[in-house]
Structure formats: structure tokens, C-alpha cells
Simulated assay, not measured.
Amino acid sequence: MPTQSTLATTFRSLHQSGLLLLPNCWDAGSARLMAAQGAPALATSSAAVAWALGYGDGDQLPVAQLTACLALITRRLEVPLTADIEGGYSDDPAAVGATVAAVIDTGVVGINLEDGRSPPALLARKIEAARTAAERAGVPLFINARCDVFLKGLVAPEQRVAETLARAELYRSAGADGLFAAGAREAADIAALVAGTPLPLNILALPGVPKADELTRLGVRRLTSGSGIAESVYARITTLTRGFLAEGDGAALSADALAYGELNTLMG
């Protein structure tokens, strides 16, 4: 197994050129499956992790449950893992720093921290606390600052690029390594964001977002699936369960299914 330091160095290097396609897992099993498809690194989706553990998204997941989940994922994972930790599960930067230290202890080498509807200055203080925690742990943690200006429509459309870039500079000064402009869809906006910050730009794969080739041309460095894969999986679970309860038909359960032996070998 690679050391955490090696994984951290590898993960950082994946943002230096080209486009990192980063699937979002939610438990050890989904992580094993995704890594087996050739993913060079993985991320967690905060929503998908919360759902898998029976909680809603939005700072509802207890930190102890989060770190237990992350430790299970990294136990046999041989590629870097970055964890979405929402807003750090607290408005107290010191508490966020303690959470980041606990997350690092699980073997994670990157985090997402988001501003949401909170003042940008608050996220900057959280980033500073996260960087301090990483330095104390001796891990070159990749801190990805998620800016929700586009995703939550925090300002008028014509102001979103400028507002995002202003926040990006604040977050970069606080110690962020990347900018996650979640919700940005238009090629012109994405190009302006790339040109306006030295931080590698992360885009969320949503309907209307350019595909990988175009994002690469625009200079985007990271594309994440977010909760999209988990949402599709849960839709499939719902469909299969409804059909089983209605008809008890085992044939439908086997259609498009991975074989028991294949799954068991992968996990075993």
C-alpha cells in the first residue's frame, strides 16, 4: 500500500495538467468498484455518504460517523482519496480544524470545504484552520475550496464570475489549493474562471456542463461526479425493489447485475 505522503503527492500532481476525472464514492464497496475501473483517485460525496449512513445532507452527519466511513474506504484503497466535508460541520474554525485533523488520521489526502450561504471570510478562516491542522499532521493536504456562488445563485448571473474570482483569491490567500466552482455550466463562464485564478479549477458534472474534451480545452483541471452516481444507483434500487415487491420476479434482479463471484473477489 502506498504511504499517505506518497498518495498526497500523487493527488497534488494530478491537478497540474490535463483533466482529472474524479468519481464520488460513498462507502468502501463503491470505492473498490470505482477504483477497479481505473480511476486515478476518488472523492467522497457528502450527500451520498450521509444517505448511505441514514442521514440527510447538509451538516447532519456526525463527524464520528464520517471518519469511521473514511477509514473503511481507505483501509484497502491504493489510490488517493479526497473527502467532501461540507462546511466542516461547524461555524467554529477551531472545531473545523479538529475535524480536519481527524479526517487526515483516516488516510485521506484532500478535502472539500464549502462556503454555502455563509460569509466568505468564514470559509477563509476555516481554510486557515485546516491548513494548520495539515501542517501539524505533516500531510500536504489538498484543500479544495468550494464556492457556491453559481450553485446557489448567490448573486445576479452577470456578477457570478467576478464574485467567484474575488472569493477564490480570498481562499487562495488563506491556504486553498483548488477552486471548486460548483454549478458553473457555460463555457464562457468556465473559461473566465480559468483565466482569472491560478488555482486549478474543479467543475461539477451536471446537465449542460461541457464534456471532458471541451473542459480540457478550456483549462479545467478537475471534474467531479458529485452525488450523481449515487442518485442513479438509488434510483435503480428503488426500481428493483418496487418490481420485486409487485411481482417477486428474480429474473429482473439478475438483469444487468454484476456476478456474485466477481463482486466477492473484488471485495475479498
Rank of each mutant, 00 (worst) to 15 (best):
R125H: 10
K126A: 02
K126R: 13
K126W: 06
K126V: 05
K126D: 03
I127L: 08
E128L: 03
A129D: 04
T132V: 10
T132G: 11
T132S: 14
A133R: 07
A134C: 01
R136H: 13
R136E: 11
R136S: 11
A137K: 12
A137F: 04
G138Y: 05
G138E: 07
V139R: 04
V139Y: 02
P140S: 01
P140C: 01
P140W: 00
F142W: 12
F142S: 08
I143Y: 02
I143K: 02
I143E: 00
A145Q: 01
R146I: 04
R146A: 06
C147P: 04
V149N: 13
V149P: 14
V149Q: 13
F150M: 10
K152G: 00
K152H: 14
G153T: 15
L154P: 11
L154A: 08
V155T: 15
A156M: 12
A156Y: 10
A156P: 07
A156F: 11
P157G: 12
P157M: 14
E158Y: 10
V161M: 15
V161W: 12
E163R: 15
T164N: 14
L165G: 11
A166D: 15
L170K: 02
L170E: 08
L170H: 02
R172L: 05
R172W: 02
R172C: 00
A174M: 03
A176F: 03
D177Y: 00
D177H: 04
D177C: 00
D177M: 00
G178K: 00
G178H: 00
F180V: 00
F180G: 00
G183K: 09
A184W: 10
R185M: 11
A187E: 15
A188E: 15
D189E: 15
D189P: 05
D189V: 05
I190T: 07
I190Q: 08
I190N: 13
A191I: 07
A191V: 08
A191F: 09
A191T: 10
L193Y: 10
L193F: 11
V194A: 02
G196S: 11
P198D: 08
P198A: 08
P200I: 02
N202C: 00
N202A: 00
I203G: 04
I203C: 09
I203M: 07
A205D: 15
A205Q: 13
P207I: 04
P207G: 08
G208S: 06
G208D: 09
G208Q: 12
V209G: 03
V209A: 07
V209C: 06
V209D: 11
K211C: 05
A212N: 06
A212C: 05
D213Q: 11
D213R: 14
D213I: 08
E214V: 14
E214P: 01
L215D: 02
R217V: 09
L218R: 14
L218E: 06
G219R: 03
R222F: 01
R222L: 02
L223N: 03
L223I: 03
T224D: 07
T224S: 15
T224N: 10
S225P: 03
S225D: 01
S225G: 08
G226P: 07
S227V: 05
G228D: 09
I229K: 03
I229H: 05
I229G: 05
I229M: 13
A230G: 13
E231W: 12
V233D: 05
V233E: 09
Y234E: 12
R236W: 07
I237K: 04
T239E: 15
T239N: 06
T239I: 12
